[in-house]
């Protein structure tokens, strides 16, 4: 099923606003003008097409021509692929790619090349200094919150582990699981021996019985 046109329009407006932040990306869009990427959800329940044009991309419910590359995957897989590209990854985990993967890689590089700087977004609204202070303050607040959350989780886990014994240490759990595995293996061996004895099968000839028979 193709995506409703109004959703395509929303995607196009957002994507173009983002891409136009980096002039070299628009130059790349112009270079790839006319080429298409079809994006679809895995079940094919929703699909849309990106066509490169001189001023960015055009997003349409249906491809105007056969697309150069078809990509299907969940939105989370798409996002993962983008974050991997930002870290230098070159593959598309969780995505099914048919056609020109190089075009897809190029588009992914364009998206990651633009980057996101909240200060730049806020500066026209608040002014440069206020935007810098606001973003700096927010970053500090987020860091403080993240650090405290992590510390609180560590302390809580330690309390549950050492004081109330509701949680086991990872090393103890590992040892216990190894012991469980050994016990299970020993039990399986014993069961096999018992089965052989019950069925009255000849015990396997050992070195000592072979010498005695000789």
């Amino acid at each position: 099923m193709s995506t409703p046109p109004v959703l395509c329009a929303a995607a196009e407006i957002a994507l173009n606003r983002y891409l136009r932040r980096e002039p070299s990306v628009i130059e790349d869009c112009a270079r790839l003008s006319g080429r298409c990427i079809e994006l679809a959800l895995p079940s094919g329940s929703l699909a849309l097409t990106l066509e490169f044009i001189d001023s960015g991309v055009r997003v349409m419910p249906e491809p105007p021509n056969p697309p150069q590359v078809r990509v299907s995957g969940s939105p989370s897989a798409l996002m993962r692929s983008l974050s991997l590209a930002a870290e230098g990854g070159t593959h598309f985990p969780g995505l099914t790619v048919e056609g020109d993967a190089e075009l897809l890689a190029e588009f992914r590089d364009m998206v990651t090349r633009v980057g996101f700087d909240p200060e730049e977004w806020l500066a026209p609204l608040l002014g440069g200094v206020a935007a810098h202070r606001l973003v700096g303050g927010l970053r500090k607040a987020f860091d403080w919150t993240r650090g405290n959350t992590r510390r609180m989780a560590d302390h809580g886990a330690e309390y549950l582990r050492e004081e109330t014994y509701d949680l086991a240490r990872a090393r103890d759990v590992g040892e216990w699981m190894d012991e469980v595995d050994d016990t299970r293996d020993a039990l399986e061996r014993l069961e096999a021996r018992l089965k052989r004895l019950e069925s009255g099968a000849e015990p396997r000839a050992t070195a000592s019985t072979r010498l005695r028979d000789a």
Binding site: P5, V6, A9
Partner: peptide, 9 residues
């Protein structure tokens, strides 16, 4: 015109 698209509002 080409690539004509209709957006209902």
């Amino acid at each position: 015109f080409g690539r004509t698209q209709v957006y209902n509002l």
